[in-house]
Design a protein around this nucleic acid. Structure first.
Lengths: 251, 251
DNA sequence: ATCTAACGTATCAAATAATGATACATCGAT
DNA sequence: ATCGATGTATCATTATTTGATACGTTAGAT
């Protein structure tokens, strides 16, 4: 089982318990943990007990279900401090959010997904789009495409060919050639704009935050209702302010 | 070392590595990890390696420093889904934040601290007050006091006598009798208001979210500049809206 | 109210997998 | 270029995890 002698299997197993929780499995019994981790019952028993004692899992004394603890939030707190981009971007995003009155996100590349690291929801934003830490396939998002557009041609072509691209909505573009065209367009324009790729009636506009090496690992994305906006209006009213914002973050 | 046979020491040690990071230690070398965890060099080497391979720690290939990974944000995402209060409160808080235009927080009791689970910053909010997961000694905050006020007399007296109460600012009240008086006042009034307990020039107003058992494990807190507001104005302008908000969350 | 199947808890001998001392390699400061 | 500090690799020892099993407990059905 262990590949090299530095791999501590027991620790890896413990982490599997944590990963067994997700947005549709927010609390788990012992046997559910056994099913979802594929580990032995005894092992799960010990790991869950340890995680509970160590404060990583809460436990309902009546139902005996395990739940994520506050520690899961504390870890996010430390992450925020650890990433200097976050503290640079946040005040600018707050200001931007107030100016345009729409939902504003900071997205970071994370493998072949993007992860939302900061989110400033507005009154129309639904729950899933209001909370940080959500991962979405990069190719399906304006943020992902605009970040890819700052990479080399080899890189973005490889990504467009192989990264996941599930059909989240009936209108999701699953033709990879079209996605690649959009990346090329983003490269030319300096922004990407999509509609109904992840959520119906949602327009997303994203501009990259370009690092010193010319590559972007982050992007600022605005989400708008397609009932209130069309692409033209987004380009006229939102894009200029967004470009100012990202420029000020890059310093 | 192990207390009972269900305790998996290896897993507990791995978690200590994660806890070695905090807001003033956002990246750590191997030897720093050894110092901060008190574990053997070899153990830290293996644990850090495993956490890296499992995606819980990033690593700078040049400096060889370990850093929190995106996974730390993903855990927060799951936590949000796991706590039904969060999804009930968030839309109301967004609306409230827009109405009053000030920083709005959802605080939860976490042992003898409170933890900020939701934060809607405004343009004046500084970084530390903008990000979720921050823990603050409960007695020092309006939220903590107003939650204590919903507990039994025995409980809140015990808390006022023994919970931590560090002098965060020159004006922090460290007289526990005064704190207890404030809890009693909160019990009578249904809200708590503090000034300069955690941060100078900051007024905090908090109202509890009371559960079916009459006890509060959460509170909504508004933070205001004492340069712009005094207690009277807060009570007149903010408090009524805040009471409406918490009432609507309790449903 | 009683039964029963599913779930959670406790125990223990076996042996695997973590341990930690040490040696080697690499880095970076002077 | 040298030296001290930091990171990496190795291996025999044994403490620790393992996992099968037996025992309690719960909740749902009749």
């Amino acid at each position: 089982m262990k590949q090299n002698s530095l791999h501590v299997g027991t620790l890896a197993k413990g982490l599997r318990l944590l990963r067994a929780f997700d947005e549709s499995h927010v609390s788990l019994t012992l046997t559910e943990l056994v099913e979802r981790t594929g580990l032995e019952k005894s092992a799960v028993q010990r790991m869950a007990h340890t995680l509970h004692v160590e404060g990583m899992l809460d436990r309902d004394p009546d139902t005996r279900r395990y739940r994520p603890s506050h520690a899961w939030l504390e870890l996010a707190y430390v992450y925020y401090w650890s990433n200097p981009l976050i503290s640079r971007a946040l005040p600018k995003l707050i200001e931007f959010s107030r100016t345009v009155g729409e939902t504003v996100n900071l997205a970071q590349m994370s493998g072949d997904h993007i992860i939302y690291a900061l989110r400033l929801p507005n009154h129309r934003t639904h729950f899933a789009a209001s909370i940080v830490g959500r991962r979405v396939p990069a190719l399906a998002t304006a943020s992902g495409r605009v970040m890819l557009a700052t990479r080399s041609e080899a890189e973005y072509r490889e990504a467009c060919a192989s990264w996941p691209l599930p059909a989240a909505t009936p209108r999701t573009i699953t033709d990879r050639a079209v996605v690649e065209e959009d990346v090329v367009a983003a490269r030319r324009n300096g922004y990407a704009i999509t509609e109904a790729q992840v959520l119906l009636n949602e327009i997303s506009l994203a501009v990259p935050i370009i690092g010193t090496d010319g590559r972007a690992d982050a992007a600022v994305q605005v989400s708008l209702s397609s009932l209130a906006y069309d692409f033209d209006r987004v380009r006229r009213e939102i894009l200029p302010v967004l470009l100012d914002t990202t420029a000020s973050i890059q310093g």
